[in-house]
Simulated assay, not measured.
Amino acid sequence: MKDIQDIQTPDNLRYTDAHEWLAADTSPSRMGITDYAQDQLGDVVFVELPEPGSHLEKGAVCATVESVKAVSEVYMPVSGTVSEVNRSLEDTPELVNRSPYGEGWILEITPDDPASLTALMDSPAYREMLKGL
């Protein structure tokens, strides 16, 4: 497992306390799990994706990530509609480990209220939260 200072938290993303990230600067907004989350899970072996077009409320389970250690639920960071899912994860779920902020993205959301993205943590706030874990 990585030391907290080695965890990547790109400045252009927003974060939840459940370790999801969201690219707030694009529409639809791409999301996935953080470097910290994938590190804690270990080797990802399966990702269950939602159906595109599904409307989900903030906090609802939107995906499931299964690793050799555990099964973890992924939660919607904001209310919105799933506009696309990363079908590459069906054949290569390990992309979540290799590239959590790149090829390992999970889904894209069209938020109900784009202003809701500002309620998520920025990188410094997320790093501060990680220090308390």
Rank of each mutant, 00 (worst) to 15 (best):
Q5A: 15
I7C: 06
Q8W: 02
L13W: 04
R14A: 11
R14F: 06
T16D: 01
D17Y: 02
D17E: 10
H19Y: 07
E20I: 04
E20N: 01
E20K: 00
W21F: 12
W21I: 01
T26W: 04
T26A: 09
P28Q: 05
G32S: 08
I33T: 08
T34Q: 15
Y36D: 05
D43Q: 10
V44G: 04
V44W: 11
V45M: 09
E48T: 13
P52I: 14
G53D: 13
G53Q: 10
S54Y: 05
H55C: 05
C62H: 01
A63K: 13
T64P: 01
T64W: 01
E66A: 08
S67H: 14
K69C: 05
K69G: 06
A70Y: 11
A70V: 13
V71N: 06
S72W: 14
V74C: 13
Y75Q: 10
M76N: 06
P77E: 14
S79A: 10
S79W: 01
G80A: 04
G80T: 00
T81C: 04
V82H: 10
V85T: 14
N86H: 03
R87V: 06
R87N: 04
L89C: 05
D91Y: 11
T92H: 14
E94N: 06
L95M: 15
R98K: 15
R98S: 15
R98F: 13
G104R: 07
W105G: 02
T110Y: 00
P111T: 00
D112A: 11
D113W: 08
P114C: 03
S116M: 07
L117M: 10
L117E: 04
M121F: 01
S123N: 11
S123M: 03
P124N: 09
A125R: 05
E128W: 07
E128S: 11
E128C: 00
M129D: 03
M129S: 01
L133W: 10
